[in-house]
Design a binder for these strands. Structure first.
Lengths: 231, 231
DNA sequence: TGTATTTTATATGTATCCAATACAATAATT
DNA sequence: AATTATTGTATTGGATACATATAAAATACA
């Protein structure tokens, strides 16, 4: 589970910081579900796994805390944050509100090359989905949405959306995978892109909202079932 | 500039962690304008000032980085984040969008005691404004808006708004203070509360949007002037 | 046997120390 | 004189060691 493969490779690739590498890895381990809701993240254990001291691990935990992925309490340690079902629902509604606004602004200024690039990403996204490579899927799903909104020229809103995406991605991966939710999402992505290409803002936004809220509803239902089962 | 006055006072008040105290202090020093845009935050200097080692300071800097108040680069250190004027404008428009949505939801479920509490906060807010106590003003201004939206039952959206508020508060304090912007804001707060008390959601939301966007416009103008002066 | 208290272990919080990097100032070479 | 090396210094990054708090386990007592 070491971040760096070997000392010999170190000076070739490394231009990043230890916490940055560890963060990426730990974040992915949380999003992938390796660590469950409420599970404790012990500094010593993680430090050992990554072959570093507790210090960089602590910084990463602080960062993940700020992202809302882990909660920390003094002298008690860090645990994976659990988001109540109603708040997951809220986050999807929030996405719908913000992304609709973003897409309106984006479509106005969208060039053909914007659409071409989004289409490229969508291609990769579909591949990773078929491969079942959920780590790539998560990254590319965000990349696709992000690419659509980029022409809007709204970096702050984009950052907020990125944060929201990060918080719900774990639940999407865990629960939407077992339903047909992702299949539907794949088809909807194509349709959104088509409407953007036509520069039909109204239809695109309406469809986008449905896309997000539908995924939200499916996920919330799956979550409620799973959590009721755990009682 | 020590956080803890003396060892004898320590055990009376302290039930919090060192990073938490330092964070609060450092955040306030950034918001107050003691540290300017782009100014370097040197770990050793801060550690000395607070009478602690660099370790808790580093954690605080990481947290503030996650909030968007400082930017860090490996081996280069931390500097106070500077937000471009257009992005300040964007943040106000984002607030308008989100807070309008929140107020609609909140008014539906708002009780008389909700309004009474908001009115209490508004009283304190006006006092701190007259005293020129900007640290309290910042805290209470957020407390007022937060209290209005609390009945909506939307903690995630509230958290997003809190983050946005944190990022723009510094500019509000620095520039809205010298214009008549805050005077106007004071009067508008009363009007919003009045419309809430009447449960007139439509009028309240319309007015709230104007309130936010007006403050934004005034601030952006002041910012452009100040930044043009610095050439 | 159940509860309360003391003890002990484990994990976190903080300080200090050492290493790596970046920046600046100076020297050397063209 | 200008430009490139080089060296020196300041600052950050990371590891180790120590202090402190929490939680669990064991023991004492009712």
């Amino acid at each position: 589970m070491a971040v760096l493969e070997s000392p010999s490779e170190r000076h070739e690739i490394e231009r990043r910081s230890l916490p940055a590498d560890i963060r990426e890895s730990l974040q992915e381990r949380i999003l992938s579900g390796e660590f469950r809701d409420g599970e404790a993240l012990v500094q010593d254990v993680l430090a050992e796994e990554y072959g570093v001291s507790r210090m960089p691990v602590r910084e990463v935990l602080r960062q993940l805390e700020a992202c809302g992925l882990v909660s920390m309490q003094t002298h008690k340690g860090a645990v994976v944050t659990s988001i109540p079902t109603e708040q997951v629902e809220e986050l999807f509604e929030l996405r719908a509100l913000l992304e609709a606004d973003m897409l309106v602004r984006a479509i106005r200024r969208m060039t053909d090359s914007d659409i071409a690039e989004a289409r490229d990403i969508l291609g990769e996204l579909e591949q990773s989905y078929r491969r079942g490579d959920m780590a790539s899927w998560g990254r590319l799903n965000w990349a696709f949405h992000r690419r659509l909104y980029l022409p809007a020229g709204r970096p702050q809103t984009l950052a907020v959306l990125h944060g929201i995406n990060l918080r719900v991605e774990r639940y999407i991966r865990l629960h939407l995978l077992v339903t047909d939710g992702l299949d539907t999402a794949e088809r909807e992505h194509r349709e959104i892109l088509r409407l953007c290409a036509l520069r039909d803002a109204e239809a695109a936004v309406a469809f986008l909202k449905l896309h997000i809220l539908d995924a939200g509803r499916t996920l919330v239902m799956a979550l409620r079932q799973a959590r009721a089962a755990d009682h």
